[in-house]
Simulated scan of single mutants.
Amino acid sequence: MSLPVLKNRAARRLFLDRHALAEQPVGPAKGDDLLALIRRLGFVQLDSINTVERAHHMILWSRRQSYRPGALKRLLEKDRRLFEHWTHDASVIPTEFLAHWRLRFARDAETLRSRYRDWQGPEFEAKLDEVLARIAAEGPVRSGEVGEDEARGKGGWWEWHPSKTALEFLWRSGQLAVTRREGFAKVYDLAERVYPEAPALSEAETIDWACGAALDRLGFATTGEIAAFWAKVRPEEAKDWAARALKRGEIEEVAVEGADGARRRSFARPDVIGAADSAPEAPARLRILSPFDPALRDRARAERLFGFHYRIEVFVPEAQRRYGYYVFPVMEGDALIGRLDARARRAEGVLQVAGFWPEPGVRMGKLRLRRLEAELDRLARFAGCDRVAFDPGWLRP
């Protein structure tokens, strides 16, 4: 039996709507409104790179340009309506999902002990009780405040001393929580002092929730994409869930057309074609996205859906880079039209644009250039800069 076909433009429309990119980036962006946006996305990835603004702030700003970083800090560190833990990477997550993270805590405790032992050595295990006892007696700590007598590395990002490794293990396994960040450094406290009480759920309940919630936020997905969304469900568990949900009529199979016309078998909620047809058209204005934007996190899916081949060239030698090592994708409507290399020179009040590379076939006429310059002005203000400056030859072929 042939599958219903979700055409590429309709698939993009639905996908962008589920990622809050099919509407104008206006409206309130604090308190309940900001929490609702993060709940809609599922989570927001944290990242330390700060060439213009940190990734989590740019993700939220690109959807609500009234957003300011203090609003996220309040929800996370004061109101405790968000908590920080792990999806595919460190992320902020609605606290209402905390009960479903018990499974993550248990699985991380099982897998990370052997992984950390192989990577950092077994010494951290002897520090677990010591670190817990110190925090219980003295209160929150940063990694630099424990293991004072332990050898430190010489600046490598992953050169953890044993007590730092113990802190991370205890956090990932749910015994500690990140109570706040100072700069970008995590401050750890006992989990019971930070997390509210959460009901006990069975493994099956969490797997069912995680798979359904992932599919609802993606619009359509393979079982691999469902498993990867929260990165807590195993691939075989996502396959079993899909088989059961399909039998119950809770989902259906659909062929999703890519940018190149190829079709990929996926799962979706019933009447996904109607949902895609009723989804709004993305506005024509330009948006500058974070490299870690949730719509682009899965690079292979972004290429299939938008025809946009995107990698961050951090480890590519400068002479071999086609673009800057950390370029920002630029979206117009439902298309990704280019990539931007920019840096905030805050001491001088300048957002410096080193380059913009249009995608093949994208012509930078006067109207599109005006839209880009207008978005750069908005980004400069968000980054605390007064003006935008352009390097000679910034508009690249």
Rank of each mutant, 00 (worst) to 15 (best):
G219H: 00
R287S: 01
L103N: 10
L296T: 07
R172I: 07
R54F: 03
H19N: 15
E373S: 13
N50P: 12
V141C: 02
L286M: 06
P28G: 12
F169I: 03
V254G: 02
R40W: 01
T165W: 07
E138Q: 13
R102C: 09
F97A: 14
R345A: 11
I226E: 09
A133S: 12
G393C: 04
E148M: 13
R234Q: 15
A354P: 11
D277F: 10
S66C: 00
R12S: 05
A109W: 06
A302M: 07
R346T: 04
G307A: 00
L367T: 15
S91L: 01
E332K: 11
A276T: 04
F43Y: 13
G219K: 03
E375V: 03
K164W: 06
L72S: 01
D386K: 14
Q320N: 14
S173E: 06
L82N: 00
L128V: 11
R181L: 05
A106K: 15
S266H: 02
G249P: 01
L6C: 10
F328S: 08
I226H: 09
K7W: 09
A275G: 07
W86C: 00
A268W: 06
F382Q: 11
A243Q: 15
A243E: 15
I49D: 11
R142Q: 13
Y325T: 02
R381A: 11
F306W: 12
V256R: 06
F328P: 00
S114T: 14
A191V: 06
V388I: 02
G258Y: 09
F308V: 01
E303H: 14
G333D: 07
R217V: 00
V92W: 04
E348P: 10
E313T: 12
W357I: 06
L176N: 10
E130H: 13
I273N: 12
E203N: 13
Y325C: 13
M1E: 11
L351K: 12
S91C: 02
L82R: 00
H309E: 15
L167A: 08
G384D: 05
S278L: 04
R339E: 05
E237Q: 15
R265F: 08
Y188H: 10
E123Q: 12
G153W: 05
R321W: 12
A200E: 15
L75F: 02
R265V: 08
D240I: 14
A29I: 11
C211N: 04
G249C: 11
G333C: 01
R378Y: 08
L379G: 01
L176R: 05
R134Q: 14
P162D: 08
T165Q: 07
E359I: 09
M331K: 11
P25H: 04
L369N: 02
I251R: 03
A200F: 14
E253P: 00
I38F: 02
R311N: 05
A302E: 05
I288M: 07
E148Y: 09
W209D: 04
F169Q: 03
R68I: 01
L16H: 03
R115H: 13
S66K: 02
M331Y: 09
N50R: 06
T223I: 06
I59V: 12
L218C: 07
R39S: 05
T165I: 13
K247C: 03
F15R: 03
